[in-house]
């Protein structure tokens, strides 16, 4: 039961994009089409799973003071693997994702889960957490991309959906991305009746990056 909860946590209750608001940059940039969003989501999920497992295995070995560089090295390794795989097998997606593929290294979802979860929990739990969070990321991304692609290009996964009405191309540009993101976060709060946000503690304790923040216990950040 507890294992299932860890897995499902990332889908709604702690959805990395729509609730924790992590990884916003790749979300906005790659949700212009469903194909890109799917590629990005799967790539990030793979990296998340790999880095969570390895960091959980190494949690006793990594010295506390240099943990962030160590995590980044682990994450960068997996990102390079993903990058090479995509380049070799799906060059279209590789080209479409462009700079955002190597930027998975600094995706805060992945570093955030390493800090918040993998360095405190067992290997199995960390793997489940990685899959859950990755799926949550992928689903949120696909949802956003579906809205943006249907309204902005008139297609879904490249399949034309309607003709006669010109699609609103602003939805595939930056303003449409922010607008869709805002609407989905609002929808999330509406569906969960604001419970997700209310449950979080106020101040530093409720901050998603509390675990990664040196000043969190003293309440030093003004964010």
């Amino acid at each position: 039961m507890k294992k299932l909860k860890i897995l499902l946590n990332g889908l709604i209750k702690e959805n990395p994009v729509l609730v924790l608001c992590l990884g916003t940059c790749p979300t906005l940039a790659t949700s212009t089409s469903v194909a890109n969003a799917f590629g990005m989501g799967i790539a990030a999920t793979f990296v998340l799973l790999g880095s969570n497992v390895v960091i959980s295995l190494l949690k006793k070995v990594i010295p506390d003071k240099v943990r962030i560089p160590c995590y980044i090295v682990v994450i960068a390794t997996f990102v390079t693997v993903v990058e090479m795989l995509l380049h070799a097998f799906v060059p279209d997606i590789y080209d479409a994702l462009g700079i955002f593929l190597p930027l998975i290294v600094v995706n805060c979802i992945i570093l955030g889960r390493a800090e918040m979860f993998a360095n405190k929990n067992s290997v199995g739990d960390s793997a489940l957490d990685g899959i859950g969070m990755g799926l949550g990321f992928t689903l949120a991304l696909m949802l956003m991309a579906s809205i943006r692609e249907i309204i902005g290009s008139g297609t879904w996964l490249g399949i034309p959906l309607y003709s006669g009405i010109q699609p609103m191309s602003i939805m595939t540009l930056a303003p449409g991305g922010f607008f869709t993101f805002g609407c989905l976060v609002a929808l999330m709060n509406f569906v969960t009746k604001g419970k997700v946000r209310k449950k979080q503690k106020k101040g530093c304790a409720g901050c998603p990056s509390a675990a990664a923040c040196a000043g969190a216990e003293k309440g030093e950040c003004n964010a």
């Binding site: 010109q166 699609p167 609103m168 191309s169 602003i170 939805m171 540009l173 303003p175």
Partner: peptide, 10 residues
């Protein structure tokens, strides 16, 4: 502005 960016040709 939204229409100008969306339906730039029309």
């Amino acid at each position: 502005v939204v229409m100008l960016v969306s339906f730039s040709q029309a």
